[in-house]
Design a protein around this nucleic acid. Sequence first.
DNA 1: CATGAGGATGGGT
DNA 2: ACCCATCCTCATG
Length: 324
Amino acid sequence: MSSPDPEALRHHLYMEFPGFPHSHVSPWPAEEHAKFFPSFPSMPEYLSRFDMLLAEDTAWLVRKMEAPTPLTRDEQMTHCKDAGQCPVIDSPGRGLCPGMNGQVEVEDRCLEQVHTLVLEEVLKDIETACKLLNITPDPAEWTSGQVQKWLLWTEHLYRLPPVGRAFQDLSGSELCMLSEDDFRQRTSQCGDVLHAHLDIWKSAAWMKERCSSESNHTFLGADEVCTEADSSCTGQPIHLWQFLRELLLKPHNYGRSIRWLNKEKGIFKIEDSAHVAKLWGIRKNRPAMNYDKLSRSIRQYYKKGIIKKPDVSQRLVYQFVHPV
DNA sequence: CATGAGGATGGGT
DNA sequence: ACCCATCCTCATG
């Protein structure tokens, strides 16, 4: 029995759910948590409400891998109920979920692999967000301005209700000291969700710290997380075209707002112009940014040969002149 | 009414 | 000098 092909699994996690995440948070029972994060018993309870795609997916992975699980989660949003929709899991001859006794070791290996992938993807997402926001991964290091930036970003990315001035003038370390109840009290709703997101960041920073202090690169190659050679670390302000590229690189986070129509040719479509403009405005500290102004900046690229309209011009569709 | 092209101006680096 | 951000006019569907 072969273990699951990580590439296939990654492909599945990313590509089968282009519309991820927005909107739903599902409880993640503590026992599930312990299964998925056995190496990190001290990770706080945030993972118990891990409202990211990977948790959504791993939730049904668990169901598939174990005997039917009495999960009380709302099944409405579960993307994959019948076998036909689970290409990776149900590939014949590739038993990720053998569904019979005596396969415990294989299942443990699968779980370990999923576990590693989950952490890998979470850390990558955080790295991307850091690039886009120009902040450090460790929330404790944030200034109050960076705290505001992160709040705005998170609230827009996950379409949470605005927090307004609930956390105004708080430094990162002060923010990190707040309990989930503090978050709930300071916000009208979804304070727990926000707290969960912050907890994910906190523990990612904690893990990164731990990994580096043990010079242990189990989860990420040094080139994936520790590189200083990209746009975020040069001190130069990020360019709009770079920003758009970064969003496009994370379809499972931003695919609802901007996505490739033809990655090879560099053709992309802005699906939610207001949202993309908002994110750009947060990045540049331009609260009044809108698509009118963003698109004017894109049009400046015509003359520079960075972005053009595709040969068959369509609304909200642009093309990188030099695709990757 | 949202989008699109592009001129003008001014700010920040 | 460069990269927008802002504002504006006119055109298009």
